[in-house]
Amino acid sequence: MTTLPDRVERRMGLVIDLDICVGCHACAVSCKEWNTQGYGAPLSDQHPYGADPSGTWLNRIHSFEIEPEDAPAQIVHFPKSCLHCEDAPCVTVCPTGASYKRVEDGIVLVNEDHCMGCGLCAWACPYGARELDRAEGVMKKCTLCVDRIYNDNIPEEDRLPACVRSCPAGARHFGDLSDPGSAVSDMVRARGGMDLMAEQGTKPVNKYLPPRIRDRHATAPQTVQLARLAEPEATGFLGWLDRALERLG
């Protein structure tokens, strides 16, 4: 049944450090590469070399600009994939029983043999984490790489979600967020790990670590004042007068 489990044994999930992510899209590419050949149907592309290409991805990297009141603007690269919510609205709306949340690790999955492609789960998700594959006609989403993390046939260091394994900057971390002693839980505590759109009541398992507040040095470039740049530079006698008057305060 597509009711949510009363309790899960573990809450496996990702912690994504927005202070570190450099926006290289390596995690998105390795996610597409791994998941097009493993679990379920391939991740199809439509007109990949045409004028209007589109395709199914389970992980996408947005870039945002933050403009603080009193400091220069800052770019934040923002990877987004399924947050494996505790109160996952995508699961309960599913009419066929294809969507489910696992008791043993809290991972939200789609049974692609049961999905009829109605798209209601994608409508119920606030995050845009589910995409209907237009070739296969079934809903695709992040599986937290269930076919890697428990896979005894690959080296132990590879038993991580493909996005975590491939991140060259170390911005992505995988672990059990229900265990207060886990490394990911430590990070969330130390850095104020946050929920996305908490007001939607989904209780996401994945956490995002906000960018650290940047140091503000006196010599750092301040907000540029165009009016000052437009003032003509005085030379000769006027220049001397200008500097003399400046010294008077």
């Binding site: 403009e67 603080p68 400091a71 800052q74 770019i75």
Partner: peptide
């Protein structure tokens, strides 16, 4: 942290 807009 400030005003947010989509950059890319």
């Amino acid at each position: 942290l400030g005003r947010v807009r989509l950059f890319e």
